[in-house]
Design a protein around this nucleic acid. Sequence first.
DNA 1: CGCGGGATTGAGCCGAATCAATGCAGGTGG
DNA 2: CCACCTGCATTGATTCGGCTCAATCCCGCG
Lengths: 246, 246
Amino acid sequence: MSLAATNEMIADRRCSTCPVRSHAICQALRGVEIDRLNSMRSPRKYRRGDVIWEEGSEADFIAIVVSGVADLDKLLPDGREHIVGLLFASDWLGQLFSERNKVTAKAVTDLELCCFPRQRFEQALGQLPSLEHEMFIRVLSELEETRNWLVTLVRKNAGQRVADFLLTLARKNDSPFCPHTDDASAIDIILPLTRGETASYLGLTIETVSRSFTKLKLAGLITMDGQRKVRILDREALTRYADPDD
Amino acid sequence: MSLAATNEMIADRRCSTCPVRSHAICQALRGVEIDRLNSMRSPRKYRRGDVIWEEGSEADFIAIVVSGVADLDKLLPDGREHIVGLLFASDWLGQLFSERNKVTAKAVTDLELCCFPRQRFEQALGQLPSLEHEMFIRVLSELEETRNWLVTLVRKNAGQRVADFLLTLARKNDSPFCPHTDDASAIDIILPLTRGETASYLGLTIETVSRSFTKLKLAGLITMDGQRKVRILDREALTRYADPDD
DNA sequence: CGCGGGATTGAGCCGAATCAATGCAGGTGG
DNA sequence: CCACCTGCATTGATTCGGCTCAATCCCGCG
C-alpha cells in the first residue's frame, strides 16, 4: 500500500469520527467527494487568546470549528475593536475569493480547527456544486442573522442587548453540541467571553455590561455562580425583558 | 413562428438592451443560459413609497433593480422600524430558499424591477452553477458590508454616521449608473431618503439627523440646495470627519 | 397666496460613557 | 499554608451625546 493511500485512510478515519461531521459544511458531501476535502485537511489547535489571523493579512485558509469558540473582530480607526461574529462547533470561517482577510479571527477559548488551504478549497468548490450550495445557504442565513443583530445593537438599550446575548447563547445550548439542563425551565450557560469581550460584542463598556448583569440578577431573571456561569431562571421572562413590546 | 418563440425573442431583445444587464447577477450568464432566466422574467413598476413585500409574507419572487432605489426594513417589536439595506440599480433582492420574506421591501423612489418567480429561479440556480456562484460572491460581499456598517452604526456618533452615509452615496456615484460631476473634488448627491428614512437607516432621530447636516454645513464640508441635493466640497475632509483617527 | 407635511431649531432630560475607587479570585512565592 | 500580587469585575459619581417634547420654519403644491 502506498504512503499516499495510507494517509488518505487515516484522514478518512478521522472524518468519519469527527464530532462535527454531520453538522458542518462537509455534511453536504459523501464518499469520493468528502475524500477530496479530506486530502487537503489539516487540523490546527489554538490556545485561548491566540490570533488565528489578522485583519488585512493574506487569506490562507478556510476553517471549520471542531471544538471551542472563535470570534471575528473589526478594528476601528481609533483603536477600539468590535466583535462582529462568534463561531461555535461546526461553524466555518475564512475569507473566500479574496486575497486578504477582512476581519481578525481569534480563539476565544482553547480551540480546534479543521483547515483547508483557501485556493485549493475554492477550486474544490467549483467542482463540488453541493458544497458551494451548502455554503451559499449558510452565508445567506448568516447575512440574515447579522441584519437582525444589527437592529438589536443599534436600537436596543444595554439591558436588552445583554438579555439578547444570553438568549443567543441559550439557543446554542439547544444545539447538538451542548447537553440539556435537567430542569426544563432553567438553562445553564457558560459565558465564553470576558466582560471586556462581551462589551466589545455588544457595543457597550465593561462597566455597563457589568451593571446590566447586576440588574438581571436583581430582577430575578438569572443567577450567577462566579463570573462565567449563568443560570437563566425563566427564559420567557428574559425574552420579554429583551423585547418589552413583543 | 410560434407564439412562445416570439415571446422569447421579445424577452431576449429586452435583456440585450437592459441597462443593468452587464452589472446585475445575469452578467454571469450567456446565450442559452440567459434565455432560461428570460423565459421567466417579468417587469414590475412601483411608485415611491409602495411596499414590494411585507416581512413575514410569502416569498414569491426574486428581483433585480433596473432603476430607482429600494430599501429593506426590519420591524421592531415596539413598532419602530430600521432600514437594513439600500438597493440601487443592478442590485438583487429577495428571499432565497425560504417560504417567508424576512424583511420588508419598499420602493424608496419610483422603481422598476425585473422579477423572477422564486421557485423557478431556485430550480434554475441548481442548473446554472455560474449563476449560483455569482450570487454567492455577491452575498459574501453583502455580508462583509453589513458587518462594516454594523460597526459604524454601533460605534460611531451621529455626525460620523451621517458623514459615512454621504460617503456611501458618493461611492454609488462612482458606479456606472451615475454620471460624474465636472468639478473633480466636489461631488453632487441626490439624497434618496427623507430625513425620517435617513434616521431609520442610521439609527438616529429625525432631529439628530437634521442637526448633523447643519453641523456638516457649518463645518464647510458640504453645501445643500433644498433638502435633497447635497454637494460634498471635500471628500477627504469628510472622510476624516467620519473616521477622526484614521 | 395659503396650506400641509417634512425639516429645522431650541430646552430639558435620560441613559450610557467616563473617571475613579474598591472588590474578588486565581496564581505565585515566602 | 497564607500573604501578596495581578487582572478582571463590580460599584459609585459625574459628564455628555442624543432623545423627547415643543415651537417654528420652509419648500412644494394646489
